[in-house]
């Protein structure tokens, strides 16, 4: 499986990552190599095998519907790059 430059650009866009033009080829090569490694899986017939998304066959625990957390806006907002009037600010969406 090989990934070309256009695909790298597509994936980078999907993942919201800026990749320098100069690095794209090396990403393409490395990603292709990784997918080649991964392709070893295809040698095994997995028909009828149940996918495993978690080590145990356990079920979700449920939380009581209780409000346990209260306003810590000041602490949290101190971490943010830009805020005003209790809001997180972001550049506007380009229409």
């Amino acid at each position: 499986m090989s990934i070309d430059i256009d695909e790298v650009k597509k994936i980078a866009k999907l993942a919201c990552l800026n990749v320098d033009e100069a690095d794209i080829q090396s990403y393409a090569t490395n990603l292709s190599n990784i997918l080649d490694l991964v392709a070893q899986m295809n040698a095994v017939d997995t028909t009828g095998v149940t996918p495993m998304s978690h080590p145990f066959d356990v079920v979700q625990r449920l939380r009581e519907d209780v409000v346990t957390d209260f306003n810590r806006r000041e602490d949290f907002m101190a971490l943010a790059p830009e805020t005003e009037d209790g809001l997180y600010l972001v550049p506007k969406v380009l229409e």
Binding site: I3, Y27, L31, L35
Partner: peptide, 19 residues
């Protein structure tokens, strides 16, 4: 994200998005 993450992290994010 492009500037904040290093190369290996970006590589894995991209593989993940792809698969």
């Amino acid at each position: 994200r492009g500037e904040g993450f290093g190369e290996e992290v970006k590589r894995r994010i991209m593989i993940g998005a792809y698969v």
